[in-house]
Design a protein around this nucleic acid. Sequence first.
DNA 1: TTGTTTTCGTCACTTGGTGACATTAACATT
DNA 2: AATGTTAATGTCACCAAGTGACGAAAACAA
Lengths: 203, 203
Amino acid sequence: MTAEAPSPRRGRPPGTTARALELIALQLFTEQGFDETTIEQIGTAAGVSRRTFFRYYDSKAAVLWDDFEGEVERLRAAFARVPYDVPLMDAIREVVVGVNRYRAEDVPELRTRMRLISSVPALQASAAPHYDRWERAVGDFAAARLAQPADSLYPLTISRTTLAACRAAFDHWLARGDEDLTSYLDLALRALITGFSDMLTTG
Amino acid sequence: MTAEAPSPRRGRPPGTTARALELIALQLFTEQGFDETTIEQIGTAAGVSRRTFFRYYDSKAAVLWDDFEGEVERLRAAFARVPYDVPLMDAIREVVVGVNRYRAEDVPELRTRMRLISSVPALQASAAPHYDRWERAVGDFAAARLAQPADSLYPLTISRTTLAACRAAFDHWLARGDEDLTSYLDLALRALITGFSDMLTTG
DNA sequence: TTGTTTTCGTCACTTGGTGACATTAACATT
DNA sequence: AATGTTAATGTCACCAAGTGACGAAAACAA
């Protein structure tokens, strides 16, 4: 997972890379649709068999979630660095917004990936376990701060609503991409923290 | 959907009912697991072929969501009856809590159904389109109140976080079923509306 | 040259889901 | 009583996702 030791390179060398499969799949999905793309096609384009694809990814949809899992790790790492004097909800907002700052060169791929996820039913369905791990990262932090078990009502509610606000920001960013993603995230999370009280007058 | 007219009963009579298939599936799922139950088994138990099952339900998981779709309709109907002077977030809380009052006799089935949905990955994945319609019901109401398009950031955020809070209440109710479901729903939604400000002191 | 190791390819199989088409069982008509 | 119409079912064929088993290829080491 971290740095690769200078492994003595035993055995048959891999015929492709997870990243290569991801890029090929991403292109085929956008070109001809997710459901219309078979794993056979992805494998062929990568010069590898269908069976080998499933050795790199557990499912056809998993290709789209590789980067997301990395974000979950960054999320946990960022929470671990938050000072104790930062209020709970402010800490969550700052961490979540901070983790979701992307380099300009990475934005196009992020956009096509998120557009696929939010438009293809089969991909929306595949989101559940990944969202769950994301929520768990937030929930563990909230539970520790509140000195409550992670499955208590408040940590659960905080983590779930936080993700919900972020998804709203993402979807709005996809629909009207005139603004920066982080602005929308910050807006949505601030609305969440204030209990949607400000928008009733400024709305 | 409503009352059935005294239809002249043309054609071959149905060999089963959607409700019958639902009950049989629910029992088999709890007894031997969702993934371990084939549609062939459900059909056989109902005295009907595999193909016929798919004429009643679009997928194996759809059986668990029939009642939920009814709740979405009740949700929309309840929103339509809310007076204009009730504040937005209060209206949402009251409507959502009100719609989720179940008769004591219906609670056991609700419990097993929700337990299945929250524990089986394949069923969690199947939730997406139904959650989407539920959110849309809330979002349309919020959008109308805020005089904004339904895909604006705030209506989106409100509807998504509302469902998120409800799901937290449901899951906590499943894990620790000592209290009433509506109490948890009310607690979670009040926490959402206050921006989680009260729990920081009351812990 | 002979192992050892790692990855890959082939094959067989189950299951979910779909389309096409014949078939059954009711009622209506003549 | 025979025939037609209608609605639901059954059968069949098919595709694609995913999985397990097992042998083969490709590297390096001894």
